[in-house]
Amino acid sequence: MGKNCTLGELLIDQLARTVEDDTLVFHGFGSPLVQIALHVAKRVYTPNLVLVAGATYGVNPDPPFISPTTNDWVHDRNSECHLSIGELFDLSASGRLGRMFLSGLQIDRWGNTNVTQLGRKTLKLKLPGGGGACNLSCNAKNITLWTAAHRSEPVKGKRRYRIVSQCDYVTGFGHKNADGITRRQLGYRGNGPQCLVTDLGVFDFDQDGHLQLNALYPHTTVDDVLENTEFEPRMKKEVKTVSLPSLEVLSIIRKLDPLRIHEKELLPGDRSLTLEEPNNAAIC
């Protein structure tokens, strides 16, 4: 039987697979892919996950559907209990937040993220801001980075890369900043970004804390990654191709998100993409 899925569903599954069981995990606002991934993780991979819903701070909610904004009451329906904003950030500050998910309009080779502004010395574009990303990037035990807009088509011959050499502004701290200061030197509790899930592939960070390609998707190639990245990412010895989500995972996603809110994170051209299981796929 041929199993197929959309790119959004594949990304959700890949994000869900980065979560460990028995940990406290939080997602921020404006991140439906991650939000759905945590529900998938809780129901399929990591049942003892403590899932804290972004913006409503509901613990282990069971929402009837995903709505277009994160602090809608729909997202904390059937929660067991609630945290306050201070409590959630206190948990992170003291090293008890197992994993946080962060993104950016720029993500650089060391895993720094920028959601504050484009333009280093002169402001070119004011971005919405990072919420609590700056704080959580330092303390959360592990970080999963993601973006659904790695692919950067040239506009008037010029690309605006999402995955860049150096962020114009460091909103969230990665493994080291442009001054060469590392998180160890700063004494941070968190291990920093562990992986980056994009619309082109799955990356991790090597011993130096540098971005490294780990796996591709059935429809993407190393050339796609090189072409759409401002610098040359390092390569794992063997770059695998991920397997598609199981039918169980797909049915959870489709039931939870009938409005297909998560597709708004994807590039318009990627929304109608259908992927098919390749031969000899490996689980990544």
């Binding site: 904003i85 700056c134 330092c138 303390n139 460091v170 909103t171 200061i181 941070y188």
Partner: peptide, 29 residues
């Protein structure tokens, strides 16, 4: 940033001259 703000409000609420925070250093904030 959210937690920086929380800590600054807590300093005010508690009548303290400042509040320590275990993050932010190394970022552009």
């Amino acid at each position: 940033c959210c937690y920086t703000l929380v800590q600054q409000l807590r300093a005010s609420i508690q009548g303290l001259p400042f509040m320590p925070i275990q993050s932010v250093r190394g970022t552009d904030f």
